[in-house]
Design a protein around this nucleic acid. Structure first.
Length: 271
DNA sequence: ATGCGGACCTGTTAGC
DNA sequence: TGCTAACAGGTCCGCA
């Protein structure tokens, strides 16, 4: 669920409700997610004001008057805004109560998510400081991808999923972007020409932007309690389509595993 | 330094 | 129908 577009959609949905609000209390129902939850989270957060909600990679950054509350949704997490008093479900691990009688509720069955309170210089925190560029900014482009790829033998799919190279390209969008760019996912990153990286960078930007726009559609029913599959699902050209005909050439799409991740591509269109 | 495999968890689905 | 195995959209760590 939480690819970068979903995290951005969450941010856009939640920001108007929480910005400017004061945290009144925090309830944690588990001791740890990916990392242990700070034991004193409630006492440290109570009375603090949420100034702004930002996103960096797939992390949500709640900018407070005393530092930053960092939330990562992992593989299975989501945030919902609910009214105070809404009964909680299984896997509703953390409730952040706000002054306006609403609650930010963190739900994560697989517990791969993360909640941490970090200091003011959030970007220098160990969890964030090694992250590569955001995919949608100008500084991320074919030229920078090309330069960083020289000498690398890693499969290009793993290369673009490396958060030090570029953030936010998850397993789904890696396959989608490579299909759009006509690049074989197993090709060694260091053996791809600059012009093709140009195309790849554009494909990454396009597919993520389109997915964010589609997430905007989900925004309308964002406060629904039902977790429905992302709207962008209908726009996927290869992911989850193994065995089906390629939209371009009609040949059956191939399913393989790269670094233990499901990968789909067209052996005819991608080189 | 690079690249790979395993680990962290639970839920759902495919297959027998 | 019921059981088991495989798999799931992320990230970090340790080893070769």
């Amino acid at each position: 669920m939480p690819e970068l577009p979903e995290v951005e959609t969450s941010r856009r949905g939640i920001a108007p409700v929480v910005e400017g609000q004061t945290i009144t209390s925090v309830v944690c129902r588990v001791a740890r997610l990916r990392l242990p939850l700070p034991a004193d989270l409630s006492s440290r957060l109570s009375g603090r004001k949420i100034l702004k909600l930002d996103r960096r990679a797939k992390y949500l950054l709640f900018r407070l008057d005393i530092g930053t509350l960092l939330i990562h949704l992992g593989m299975s997490g989501h945030l919902r805004i609910v009214s105070a008093g809404t009964p909680c479900d299984r896997h509703d691990h953390v409730d952040i109560h706000l002054g306006n009688d609403t609650v930010i509720r963190f739900h994560d069955p697989r517990k791969f998510g993360l909640v941490a309170l970090i200091g003011d210089a959030a970007e220098e925190h160990p969890l964030l400081c090694h992250l590569g560029p955001e995919p949608l900014i100008r500084e991320f482009n074919g030229q920078s991808l090309f330069q960083r790829s020289r000498g690398r033998k890693i499969a290009v799919k793993s290369f673009i999923m490396d958060q030090q190279i570029v953030v936010g390209v998850g397993n789904i969008y890696a396959s989608e972007a490579l299909f759009r760019a006509g690049i074989h996912p197993l090709r060694a990153a260091g053996r791809i020409a600059a012009t093709r990286y140009q195309l790849l960078a554009e494909s990454i930007k396009d597919v993520l932007s389109e997915a964010i726009d589609a997430g905007g559609t989900t925004l309308r029913d964002f406060f629904d309690s039902s977790a429905r599959p992302g709207y962008f699902r209908n726009n996927l050209l290869v992911y989850g389509c193994g065995g089906q005909p390629c939209r371009t050439c009609g040949c059956a799409l191939k399913s393989i595993r790269i670094a233990q991740r499901a990968t789909v591509y067209c052996a005819y269109c991608q080189h």
